[in-house]
Each structure stands twice: as C-alpha cells, then as structure tokens.
Simulated assay, not measured.
Amino acid sequence: MLVSITEYLVKYYAGFHVFSYMKFRSIASVLTAFFLSICISPSMIVYLQKMSLGQIIRNDGPKSHFKKQGTPTMGGFIIVISIIISVLMWAYLSKYVWCVLFVIFSYSIIGFIDDYRKITLKTTKGLIARWKYFWQSVVALVVSFIIYRISKGTLTIDLIFVSCKSIIPQLMSLLSILISYFVIVGTSNAVNLTDGLDGLVIIPTIFVASGMGLLAWIKSNIYFATYFNIPYFCDASELVIVCAAIVGAGVGFLWFNTYPAQIFMGDIGSLALGGALGTIAVLLHEEFLLVIMGGMFVVETLSVILQVGSFQLFGKRIFRMAPIHHHYELKGWPETTVIVRFWIISFMFILISLVILEVR
C-alpha cells in the first residue's frame, strides 16, 4: 500500500525510490511489525485481564503450570494484526503475498474460535477436533489449488538429496495439490503442538521465518539462484517482506511472552503462524527443506504420534507426557532449561538446512 503510493511521489522527488528497494522494505517490515507488537501488547494484556480471558491449564500437566492459570491468552491476535499491517504497508501485493495473508487470516479465525470455546467452557478441549481439522483442510485445499493455478499448472518440489537432483519429477496436478495441503495443515498443527511453554514456539518460528526469508531472497535474485543451482522465482521477493514481518511481530511478542509469560499466543497465533510458514514453503517449492528447518516442530509432532500409537497398540507410554517438552519437565528439568535448549536445537536445524541448500 505504502510502496504503491511512493510510485507517484517519485515523480516529485527521486529520493522516494528507496521505498522500492527490497532491503529497505524488509528492514522496515521487521521494525513496523516489531513496534506494532510492542505497542499493542500492554493494552491487549489489560483488556484480556478485564474480560477474564485467561489460559485454562490441563489437570494432568506438570504441577508447575498451575500457577499459569488465568494468564491472558489469545495474544496471537497481536502477532496476526502486526504481520498483516506491516505486509500491507511494505509489500507489493502479489498473488503470493495474498495467499499467505489469506491463510494467516483464516487460520487465526479458526484459532480464535478454538481459544474462545476453551475459555467460555472452562476446558482444554476447545473446538471439536474434527471440525477444527475440517476448516483447516478447507482453507489449505483452497490455497493449494490457487497456488497450483498461479504456478501455471505444475508444482516442482526440490528434493533434498543431490543424487535426486537430475530426476526431479513434474508431479501430477492432484498429487501437487495434496502435498501442498498436507504441508500447510501439517505445519500449522505442528507449531500448535509445540506451543506449550513460555516463549518455546516463538523463537523456532522466528528462526524458520528467517530461513525462509533468506531462501526467498536467494530465489528472487537470478545471480544467487544460479550460484546455488536452484530455480529462480522473481515473485518470491515479496515473500521476504512477509517473512520479515513474521520475525518482527514474533520478536515484539516475545518481549511479553518470555518466561514468566505475561500473555500466551493461543491457537489464534500458533495455527496462523504455522499455516503461514507452510504456505511460504509451498510457494517457494521448499517443502522438504521446511521439514529440516522446522525440525523442532517435527520432533514435537512425532512425540505425540508415537505416544498415542504406543498407548493404543501396546497400552504403554513412551514418554512421561507428550508433546516431548512436557516429558523433560516431568523428568525434573526447569522450564527455562527446556525452553532454551529447544531453542538451541531449533537453531541447529536451521544451520543444517542451510548446509543442505549449499551442497545439494
């Protein structure tokens, strides 16, 4: 929006050209989202406290969590609104950008309904699982079809291994849409599962958004794309602005979400952020690299799958509690220790993904 206005102002003063530079707009996007998040949060915390919109704690969870009962939740609204405003201000609104914004907005609504039901019904269940998954699926399928169409009828998925580089297939249209669907829904739910401790999920999200932003920047530059031997996408440049907004909003929210948290993001934030990361990965054709970058989310999700599968098949639990971050809490790790160590692991996954990008 703002960059479109400056196109007219350039006629009167050439200095306004700076607003069209991607580096400038990326930095501006980070700062705008950050300051919006920082400015909105205090008022939001006070409002949520007045409305008694506090977190409901699981009875079977770690005892240390009981003191968090009533902490304001649904703080993901702060992240979502900061991202959307920042992107609208600093990005050229291409089809790629609209796809991500649509997912963020739609998934935040699903998350809001889920959070609101938890609070009003005084339960940790929230929205019925099948309905939650149904609406996630509807949004993901719509976006996957749109992405398929704007990709001119084909989606190419870059495989991780170098040995596969020469035989990358052009996937059938249906398979392409299904893979995109699973990536978007899967990432959204994986981020949601990871959101269990103060600040635990936001730093890995910032790391992954930073990694995806770097990928978008490389792919939108024909020289860098040639050097790394990866496909060139001129439209990917605006996804850098989106990733920058996610980073800025996330850092601003972390100011109040770090231990001991003054506010939780709730499903309104985790579902939207996860859906956004999945959509960006699909648009960049980096679905498999997302699995490496978001390795922390994968580990958390696998711990739940293994726990449920083991209990249903053998009547035994693998972990003391799933997701796995609760397992380490019940083993006696302080919450801050679990959080920081998981942050470190997440950072290692980002480094591994960048090595894979270099050598593949």
Rank of each mutant, 00 (worst) to 15 (best):
G269C: 15
D235E: 06
F233S: 10
V201R: 01
G278A: 11
D195R: 03
F224R: 02
F253V: 05
V242S: 10
L277C: 12
N229M: 15
P260T: 02
D195N: 07
E238G: 01
L197P: 01
A249K: 09
A249I: 11
A261W: 14
P204D: 12
G266R: 09
A276C: 15
G213M: 01
G266E: 06
G266T: 07
D235K: 00
I280E: 08
G196T: 08
G213E: 00
A276K: 13
F233G: 07
V242K: 06
E286S: 14
C243N: 07
L283M: 13
W255F: 00
S237C: 03
L277N: 07
A244N: 03
E286L: 12
L283C: 15
T194Y: 13
C234A: 02
D235F: 01
I203C: 02
S237F: 02
N192R: 06
G269K: 10
A261T: 13
G278S: 14
L239F: 12
F256G: 00
G250D: 13
G278H: 03
W255T: 00
V282W: 04
D235P: 00
I263W: 04
M265D: 11
N192H: 10
F264Q: 03
L254I: 09
T205K: 09
D267A: 08
A244M: 08
